[in-house]
Amino acid sequence: MNALVTFRVGDTDWAVDVDAVLEVTTASSVTPVPGTARRVLGVTSWRGRTLPVLRLAEDLKDCGSAPDQRCRLLVLRWPGPFALRVDSPGQIVRTWEPLERESVPGETEVLELVRVEGELVRVLDVPRVVADPRALLDNTGGGACARTA
């Protein structure tokens, strides 16, 4: 059986393997962390831990928009828990049939495309999102808090 959690970032539909998801939650506040890259939205408190909140590259395209203080998060388990800001978490899709899959060369965060209920959605390649932890730091020397949440 295939089980995916779907979600939307901007105008794009995404999905992630259900086993990678620890929780779908709403953060009451996200604290920005100076010295981190733009894709690090900040940190939030989750189950007694301080958890980094990341954005997908897709989410960074509109540079001017700052996310709301309260934002929807998918807490993912690999390789250590981190949260992904999403616009709207969707649903859990379960199918017994093999999914129709297509590869997507060039998009680093996309594992493949699958057809869910007739629509093509991008399946998130979770390890690739945080493949290089150093890329989460701001190496330009500039601040990262102009985007204050």
């Binding site: 962390v33 981190t36 958890l51 730091l137």
Partner: peptide, 10 residues
């Protein structure tokens, strides 16, 4: 700062 973040200078 737990999870995937490397140590952040400062």
């Amino acid at each position: 700062l737990s999870g995937v973040l490397p140590p952040v200078p400062g």
